[in-house]
């Protein structure tokens, strides 16, 4: 368990934008993960996708780590931003763009 927490901590420390998801950015294996990939891609934000289907330990570990029961989960600069609903609502209300801008995250398409 310590190992998986260490792995998650280093992923969110070493990468500005990390999406814990089912499948990969190219082949999402869940509609909710796919929606977040689409939003990030639309804005042109580069991110690291971590496939929680790689291990049960990771799949359960990220839920405990974030105290959040579902996948996907988006981390920006080490902070948990939310799951699919929150990211989609922020995107629809144009808050996501503002959030990335405030946090100096590059958006290639904006």
């Amino acid at each position: 368990m310590t190992d998986i927490n260490g792995f998650i901590s280093s992923e969110i420390k070493d990468n500005e934008v990390v999406l814990f998801m089912k499948g990969t950015p190219v082949f999402p294996q869940c509609g909710f993960s796919g929606q977040v990939v689409q939003i990030l891609s639309y804005l042109g934000v580069s991110f690291k996708g971590v496939n929680v289907l790689d291990s049960d330990e990771l799949r359960d570990g990220i839920k405990t780590f974030s105290n959040w029961p579902t996948i996907p989960q988006l981390y920006v600069k080490g902070e948990f931003l939310g799951g699919c609903d929150i990211i989609r609502e922020m995107f629809e209300d144009d808050e996501l763009r503002a959030f990335f801008k405030e946090n100096d995250i590059d958006m290639m398409n904006v």
Partner: peptide, 14 residues
């Protein structure tokens, strides 16, 4: 916040 609302609902249905 959105996250706080979701967390309340998640806790309720944990």
């Amino acid at each position: 916040s959105r996250i706080e609302r979701h967390r309340l609902i998640n806790d309720c249905l944990c």
